[in-house]
Design a protein around this nucleic acid. Structure first.
Lengths: 232, 232
DNA sequence: ACACTCCTGACAATAAATGTCAGTAGCAAT
DNA sequence: ATTGCTACTGACATTTATTGTCAGGAGTGT
């Protein structure tokens, strides 16, 4: 095994671990000496990989994703940049921040010639006056989806009629100029979509839900033949 | 210089060249022997870099972009995937294809654990019934922008009134649920934006334009304090 | 045929990486 | 304070990988 391959695999190994890993563990895993592990870790840190090590504890690494060298075509890179611009303009402050740091990282690894090409691509996704504003906390809602927390909504339908309901939030979908929150509605006992701009109020509850086949996102997507061309 | 660094730099060197480059050129550029160059090229090809070599000619490489190993946070990778989904759903078939191949490449380098995390992110950008359809050839328009070709438009404004005008196309901007073509309008002698869905007809002309300070995109962006947070 | 290139194997020389050993330091528990 | 458990570093002999030289083969165009 080439050293550069081993370095890459050490990073993946550390990321797959939730608790600290000692140099001795790594040495055994990769069949090298502890001294070599110390050298490898030092080189990884020098190239910017965020590994922290504590005497008596071991090594820890934040949950990042290391991508190996990749070759992208012009169109793919344009997709990446335009996509980031769209996320920056059409999601919330948290995701916008991620989009900006992603672009910043890309720019730092692209050559000057590559950067010139982008200046000439002329594809933008600016902040848009056509956006319909929403007051829901996007990140909090995402956390509720992830942690399977029920949410109490005050929702105004297209006629302006208000309803209160408890839902199991399952996903968020971009329907420019707005977003839809998809969930299982306990009031209607069925799947429903809610436009973020029509949610008057959303309270994340302590109640946690467990997916059943009927109430799950997977079930809904399969039943409706979900189509964005990217997900399986 | 480490060998892995040199390999990466050889790729960048080849991409910066429009005509074939001999092993001898590369050897001089990097101060190594020709035999070493042959070995390096072979290793690059083995790892998937698309280099073609012809006896008597030299080496050629398609205009791709090689990214070195990168470390992305979860949010950045989510941005990337959601962005690709947005581009897939809200641009044209050409860019959608690039988006799909980008996602495919990413999936092929992500670990199984990483892929699980994405299954749980629950952020989508499906094909949307709210999209306002357009008949303009998006890719042809992008080519006109790139090649600085004037375009003859039949345009219907919001009242439905038709005008014919010749413009210098400068950029495309996403204003979900539609796109705007920005250009210098020769009829109005000023910058104008045109919704793609209101363009009845667009004919790319053979006439080529040269930017002047007044008519350029740069000028317009500076004058209007363009804001998307990603471009300088 | 000649010129110009890519390509490969073999091997001595050079460079880089590795493992062993010794020593230093930090943190927590006893 | 001592012990146990770890991270850390330098030195040096040994091992491994890489490099350059040399020789030979092949393809394309003039």
């Amino acid at each position: 095994m080439r050293r550069s391959d081993r370095l890459f695999q050490i990073v993946n190994y550390l990321q797959g671990r939730r608790i600290a890993v000692t140099a001795s563990d790594i040495a055994q895993e990769f069949d090298v000496s502890v001294r070599t592990v110390y050298r490898d870790i030092q080189d990884l840190i020098l190239t910017g990989v965020p590994i922290s090590g504590e005497a008596g504890v071991g090594y820890l690494m934040a949950r990042n994703h290391c991508l190996p060298p990749m070759t992208l075509e012009v169109g793919e890179l344009e997709t990446l940049m335009l996509g980031a611009a769209m996320v920056n303009s059409w999601t919330d402050a948290t995701m916008a921040k991620s989009a900006r740091s992603l672009v910043s990282k890309l720019k730092s690894v692209l050559s000057d010639k590559d950067r010139e090409i982008f200046a000439g691509t002329a594809l933008f996704a600016p902040y848009s006056t056509m956006q319909i504003p929403w007051t829901v906390d996007f990140s909090a809602m995402r956390a509720a989806i992830r942690d399977k927390r029920k949410v109490k909504l005050n929702y105004a339908d297209e006629k302006g009629d208000l309803t209160k309901r408890i839902i199991r939030p399952l996903s968020l979908s971009f329907f420019g100029p707005t977003w839809l929150l998809h969930g299982w509605c306990e009031l209607r006992k069925d799947h429903r979509n809610f436009r973020l701009d029509r949610i008057q109020d959303a309270e994340i509850l302590e109640d946690v839900f467990i997916d059943t086949p009927e109430t799950s996102l997977r079930h809904y997507l399969q039943r409706h033949g979900y189509k964005d061309g990217l997900h399986d």
